[in-house]
Design a protein around this nucleic acid. Structure first.
Length: 300
DNA sequence: AAGTGAACCTGAAGGC
DNA sequence: TGCCTTCAGGTTCACT
C-alpha cells in the first residue's frame, strides 16, 4: 500500500489503540514475510508496553519497554511493502460488538493488546498478500545506524527538506528526475504516486536529467526550489486526506483514504492535463521498470 | 560509480 | 467460463 502519507495515516490510526497498551500475545502465523521474523520476536514483545508509534520515511516504528526493563529500549521496525495493511478489532466489555472483521489467509501477524487506552482488549492484525513487507527489531539508541536507515535522505515533511539539500543530492546526477526522486537516499518517503504528482505540479519532465536543476555553483535553480514546495505540499495534502486508497486499501480503522480522487497525473493516462493553460494529454511511459505518468506538453 | 533490470509474491483486470 | 498476459503504492541485488 504505502508511500509516506499512507504509512503516516496507518500510524495515526493505530496510535490511539496501541500507545500505552500491553502486548499480551504476539501471534506469528508463519515464519517469515519478506525476511524471517527475528529470532525471539514474540518472546521479546510479549508483556511489553507500547510507548509510542513513530515513522521514518515508509517505516513504522513501534517503540516499547519490555516488562523486564533491563532489556528495554527495543523498537519494532515494520515496513508494509507493496500490499501490507493493518486493521483493528476492539472488544469493549458490555458492548455488543458485531462485525469483527473477517480473517484472511494473508493475516500474518496478530498483536493481542490489553490495557492503556483500551477499555477491554483489541487485536491489531497485519495483512500482506504479497509479503514484501517485513518486521525487524532494533535498539532505540542504534536506530540511526540500522541498515534500513543508513544513508537515508531527508523527510519531505517538516523543515528538513530544502532546495539546498536537494541541490546537493542532485549535483552531477544524470539520472532522470523520476528515478532521482524515488531514490530514498535523496528524499525518504516518496514513491511512484507522489513523485508523479509533484513533478506534474512543478511542470518538470520526469525524463529530465537531475543535474539540470542545479546551477553550476551548486545552488538550486528556481525550478528546483519550486519543486521542493510542491513536494512538501502534495505530501502534506495527502496526509490530510488520509492517504490514497488504491485497490480497496483502507486505513487501520477501515475508512478509505481519499487522496486518490485528487490525482492529476498518476494513473490518468489518456485524460486531459489538468493545468488550465495546457491542452496536453497525460501519457504513460516506463522508467526503470515502473510506470511514469506525465504531461509531455507542459512538463519540460 | 552510476544506472538499469530482475527478483521477491499474490491477486485483479483485461484480452481472446 | 477459463486461460493467458500484464500490472500493482517497494526494496535489494546482480549485472553493464
Amino acid at each position: 500500500m504505502p508511500e509516506l502519507p499512507e504509512v503516516e495515516t496507518v500510524r495515526r490510526g493505530l496510535a490511539p489503540f496501541m500507545e500505552g497498551a500491553i502486548i499480551e500475545r504476539l501471534e506469528l502465523r508463519r515464519a517469515d514475510l519478506r525476511f524471517p521474523f527475528p529470532a525471539g520476536l514474540a518472546d521479546t514483545l510479549e508483556g511489553a508496553r507500547i510507548v509510542s508509534l513513530g515513522r521514518r520515511a515508509k517505516y513504522l516504528l513501534i517503540d516499547f519497554s519490555p516488562a523486564d526493563a533491563q532489556t528495554g529500549d527495543d523498537v519494532l521496525i515494520a515496513h508494509l511493502g507493496m500490499s501490507g495493511s493493518f486493521k483493528i478489532d476492539e472488544a469493549v466489555p458490555g458492548v455488543f460488538h458485531h462485525e469483527r472483521s473477517t480473517a484472511s489467509a494473508h493475516d500474518h501477524v496478530v498483536f493481542h493488546l490489553k490495557g492503556g487506552p483500551l477499555k477491554g482488549s483489541a487485536t491489531v492484525t497485519y495483512n500482506d498478500p504479497r509479503r514484501f513487507g517485513f518486521m525487524l527489531l532494533a535498539k532505540r539508541a542504534e536506530l540511526n545506524d540500522h541498515p534500513s536507515f543508513v544513508g537515508m535522505g531527508v523527510e519531505p515533511v517538516g523543515n528538513a527538506l530544502s532546495p539546498e539539500i536537494l541541490a546537493k543530492a542532485l549535483t552531477g546526477k544524470r539520472t532522470p528526475m523520476k528515478a532521482a526522486l524515488l531514490d530514498q537516499r535523496v528524499i525518504a518517503g516518496l514513491g511512484n504516486i507522489y513523485v508523479c504528482e509533484a513533478l506534474w505540479r512543478a511542470r518538470l519532465s520526469p525524463r529530465r536529467e537531475a543535474r539540470t536543476l542545479v546551477r553550476k555553483d551548486g545552488r538550486p535553480t528556481k525550478r528546483l526550489a519550486n519543486l521542493t514546495g510542491h513536494i512538501r505540499d502534495v505530501i502534506g495534502e495527502a496526509i490530510e486526506a488520509g492517504g490514497s486508497s488504491l485497490r480497496d486499501h483502507r486505513q487501520a480503522d477501515g475508512q478509505l483514504g481519499y487522496f486518490q480522487h485528487r490525482f492529476s497525473a498518476y494513473d490518468r493516462q489518456g485524460s486531459a492535463c489538468a493545468h488550465d493553460d495546457c491542452a496536453g494529454t497525460i501519457a504513460r511511459i516506463v522508467q526503470s521498470g515502473r510506470s511514469t505518468f506525465y504531461c509531455p506538453a507542459c512538463q519540460r
